[in-house]
Write a protein that binds this DNA or RNA. Structure first.
Lengths: 268, 268
DNA sequence: TATTCCGATAGTGAC
DNA sequence: GTCACTATCGGAATGAG
């Protein structure tokens, strides 16, 4: 799925290495060297320094990770599959700009030029994500039936029926209080159908204003989402993203309901 | 282990039956009759009417229960094994006096004559309980070694060494806020070694002033134990009954510690 | 203030 | 604010016709 490759040697040029060094934690060069020496895939994914720095290795060395994880990368971005997806499709868009990657997204996106670069990359990424949804669920979808039929015809037509607009089923944005230190934009399908969705915060971080869509930036100075703790988004009742039913504190009941909704959703 | 039997027919004499009828809940005679008809052992132990009336059947019909449960009974008392023992030895002394059995122990024991009858029965029961502890743990006890040795000699002496004073390892009293509606006095060994000890309240109800020893009655008017909720005994930190160590809220750690203490305690 | 089951909540440790 | 493990805490039902 890799779309662009960057010359590996670019990353080892002195100026580049210095830049990437800033991605690392505050420990000294020597220890960093030891770590880079042990830089196997398994090691990279563990919480070697801090649990919150887990995205750093993907940004620093996307080429050293499996294609199962890294969707694509270029000079400015790395796109990976979230290791703990909270929906059937859950990607992370990681800007590599060393001036931004350690910033809170609200601060990073104050730079309109940078924001626009991110928005442009999201715009590029959306169709990729939509096509992945079609690949996974097209066979169940009523709206896809004609398109699938045309595809399977003996002589497929030059122009396929549009089928379902999967782009509508994807949302892109950041958490008002990210848990990982490196700037990351979630590209996530709506379904919330995942074994990894286990806690209240998992659900509400994608289903309340705690999730701030990229198109909502730049954020107004008085936007309440700037104070997610004060607003208590993560403690809100569970509300189904699709039907709006309120499940109070009953997470298990919500999970069972999400299963049902998923079955309907993929058949639309 | 039964020491006294009462004539079964006594319980069915009209005046007696009326008396025992008061032990039942507020439902009518007809339903009561149906219940007594279904009065099998299993049925008696279930929470047929209310979870808090579970001791009633033992008081009303001790003769219809297994000797594994009923230790002994006479006209005035029934002694049973607690169905959910919170120590290796845990008996309940149940006064049968229909004027008292529905009272809170603090009220029932205001009647000094009645209190003295209960104290006398406790005094009788203690040696029985102590001998049961000796039976169970004498073989581990250092203080019992000489006595056990004498017992196992070819010609046992007329007078055995005293051995360990197991009476000290028993405490007798009531809960400041009993959970079961019928008046009951706990006869319980100190060890708190039981699979049934599962919750904070289980432990603290026997290890704080929430447990009021029978010898502390009559209770002063201003005794703080009259207000167990206000005093918050059941919410106290866990404190080992033997070494006094404080385990905070860490119930599991307390449980592991109790296991160790038990191994030492039985070897004294 | 019973037990039991189920589930929500809270604290910890991760190299 | 990661995950994963353990454990604490919290509500609801508990029978029988």
């Amino acid at each position: 799925m890799s779309m662009n490759n960057i010359d590996n040697t670019d990353l080892t040029k002195p100026e580049k290495r210095n830049a990437f060094s800033e991605l690392m934690s505050s420990r000294g060069r020597q220890q960093r060297h030891i770590r880079e020496h042990n830089n196997e895939a398994k090691e990279c994914q563990s919480y070697s320094f801090s649990a919150r720095d887990g995205l750093g290795p993907y940004i620093a060395h996307p080429e050293s990770h499996s294609a199962n994880t890294v969707v694509y990368y270029n000079d400015d971005f790395v796109v990976i599959h979230d290791k703990f997806p909270k929906s059937t499709l859950h990607l992370l868009l990681l800007p590599r700009d060393t001036e931004k990657t350690r910033l809170h997204p609200f601060d990073a996106f104050e730079d309109i030029e940078f924001l626009n670069k991110v928005k442009a990359e999201v715009k590029k990424l959306r169709p990729l994500a939509a096509s992945e949804l079609r690949r996974q669920f097209g066979k169940y979808s009523a709206q896809e039936a004609m398109r699938q039929e045309a595809l399977n015809a003996e002589t497929p037509p030059d122009e396929l029926p549009a089928g379902r607009d999967w782009d509508k089923e994807i949302m892109c944005g950041v958490h008002a209080h990210p848990s990982m230190n490196h700037l990351h934009v979630h590209i996530i399908s709506m379904d919330r159908h995942s074994e990894r969705l286990k806690h209240r915060k998992h659900y509400n971080s994608f289903s309340t204003p705690f999730f701030v869509r990229i198109e909502d930036f730049p954020l107004a100075r008085d936007d309440p989402r700037r104070h997610p703790g004060r607003e208590g988004y993560l403690r809100w009742d569970f509300v189904c993203w699709r039907c709006g039913n309120n499940f109070g504190n009953r997470f298990s009941e919500l999970k069972r309901h999400l299963e049902e909704e998923f079955e309907h959703w993929k058949r639309l």
